[in-house]
Design a protein around this nucleic acid. Structure first.
Lengths: 209, 209, 209, 209
DNA sequence: GATGAATGAGCGTTCATTCAT
DNA sequence: AATGAATGAACGCTCATTCAT
């Protein structure tokens, strides 16, 4: 029962931390603030985590786990390449809206210099997506569905880049403002943006018929 | 003459600032450090700039100006659409390598929450590229060169996103590591990566034949 | 039986405390550490003792009791003055080596400012030795064995000071280093040092034949 | 002139620090408190000194310097051995009363575990007195003035121990209380105590006529 | 009675900002 | 105008002490 309590409390702490880090970034985030928002005292934070770096890593790990769990789904699908692209885009978008802080934390680590642990976590998750998309592009190549002249690894990087930008566009203020600037009245129409991205990725990667 | 001196000094200060902000990020950058590197006293910094935020904005403005100056070149070109894509990619890449700090500052503002002024600057520069690329895509559409079903605004956002990722990949550590992870031995081959990006962007945006 | 258990536990607690205080000093000693080493919870410590100061006093009392118990032995001896000096030195040295923590705690109270209780304890034990040595010196005077012109009280203070330094030299790092510095290769030879001290104390205090 | 100002300010800071460290010991001393007492802000402390350890070392060094300066005087005297002992005792006592904090700091380092620098300083000063007294005792031996059977090194350690106790007795609360306990009404009579110590040291170290 | 998780005051330390010189 | 020493709020973090279980 104590275990259970701990787990719940841990969840509250991690959520408060992720929110704060996502909102303010690592440096501006305050441990005292996080504790207050989690309804606990600072001391507790340091019972569970060695220091701010360590706690950030834990928040990051938590966020990245749900992210990589979601990515595991992709493997089980049995669809046409075109449909797979659309579904990945759709799933990524839905996920982004459900876990804004996860995406923001993901974005946060692209900026500053972090502890060894945070760096490892980031490398691990990027490694997973790198392998996933590289495999996928290699399979397309195998099936003669990848466009002539396109190298699978470059295709995978390109694909992931597009997904990153999509995720950031829905969660990181700067990218959201930029999206608005570009799209004008189309800004609100998620459906259509998704469709457009699908068309472009299709054209970029897949052989014509 | 004092004016002249001031301008030169200003340049030195802004460069020292941009270097520091690019290297350490806004929070970890030290005003004292910047002043020392610029060969002046902190007092001078606060004579020219209200506070750290304000100074960061000035550095950003300086960096963004060279960026937008470079973009102005694009208009003067008279080439085929395919060639234009390649040349923009090529110019952007060259620029990135020549002005790493400008790109890093550009990336820095995508993260944290900054002053109103920094936000306005960012919006202004994004506005310029938004208009540039939107105009360009509209022109393609007009000339019936844009792929069927592609909305120019979405194409412009897509195009700019790809350029951003390219720039970050060459200057921001995290993106560089990621590129390495995806590309493996292709990592060193800039020429080929550029070629691949061109192929994909071409396929994504332009009508076949 | 619970009483008995308590007493045993108390002994364990006090020993753990004395060890910690002796090793790290009052400030750096950690109540949690002590509790862990004693195999109990911090709560118990605060059941038995009001606070850290109070607990330190208890440890001190425990240590001082064995010290004063040992001193009681002196009374029962029936020896010549010269032999008495030698035996006291010898016993003190042996005791020091058997109870290093007691000596270290004793030294610890010479430094910081402590609670009223710790001060009283220290005064009490010093009072005992003061009376013991004063009585002893007065007896020597009575027997016309004390050196001419020497006041018994000053002799007692001098004697105790020498004993203190001897004890510290064998247990407190700083004094040990100092001893090494002075003695050089004689450092290892306890027997000889004891002999030398005896000679000097003898010469300082006792009448020549 | 700025140099001058700095030096004066430094003196104020060091004095405030020495007072605080002498009074409360290293751990309980507060940097903020010291700054307040010195009439400056904490920031200044960290301008001059790297951290608390470093600052303590500086205070210690300052105190030990005056101590070793005083000791240098001893060499210039040209007196009989008996007179030399008396004069050293007298000078040490006078010094102790003039620089209580120096003696208290000296005592402080006998307790806790300190930074490498503090340890080195302490070793250096002890080294000086060790050499001084060892030389002195060796000279006595040479002149056939040291008591038969007394080893000069042991005599030097014994002599320094007596001086330490004397110094502590006049400046460290615990030792002062103890002195009162032993001496009773003789407590106030410095002259007589000095005389007594001289008699005892004389008897301990020097050959009878 | 015993536990040990939780508290929070208070520490050492940093650094953007100010202002006397 | 230029300096850089001085300021002090605010941070991360610790640990003696408390109290719900």
């Amino acid at each position: 029962m104590l275990e259970k309590l701990s787990e719940e409390k841990l969840k509250v702490i991690l959520e408060a931390g992720s929110r704060e880090f996502a909102e303010k970034g690592f440096e501006k985030a305050s441990m005292k603030n996080i504790a207050n928002n989690a309804g606990i005292s600072v001391g507790v934070m340091y019972k569970y985590y060695k220091n701010k770096d360590d706690f950030f890593s834990a928040c990051l790990e938590d966020s990245l786990r749900v992210l990589s769990d979601k990515m595991d789904e992709f493997h089980s699908w049995n669809t046409t390449p075109r449909e797979r692209i659309r579904r990945i885009l759709s799933v990524v978008l839905t996920f982004s809206k459900e876990h804004p802080d996860a995406i923001r934390l993901y974005h946060e680590i692209t900026s500053s210099t972090f502890s060894e642990k945070a760096r490892e976590l980031a490398t691990r998750i990027e490694g997973i997506s790198a392998r996933t998309y590289n495999d996928y592009m290699a399979a397309l190549k195998e099936a003669n569905l990848l466009k002539e002249d396109i190298i699978p690894e470059a295709a995978a990087l390109f694909f992931d880049s597009c997904l990153m930008m999509l995720q950031f566009s829905y969660n990181v203020e700067y990218f959201d403002e930029r999206k608005k600037l570009y799209l004008g009245k189309l800004y609100e129409n998620d459906e259509e943006l998704l469709n457009q991205m699908m068309l472009m990725l299709d054209g970029a990667l897949l052989r014509r018929d």
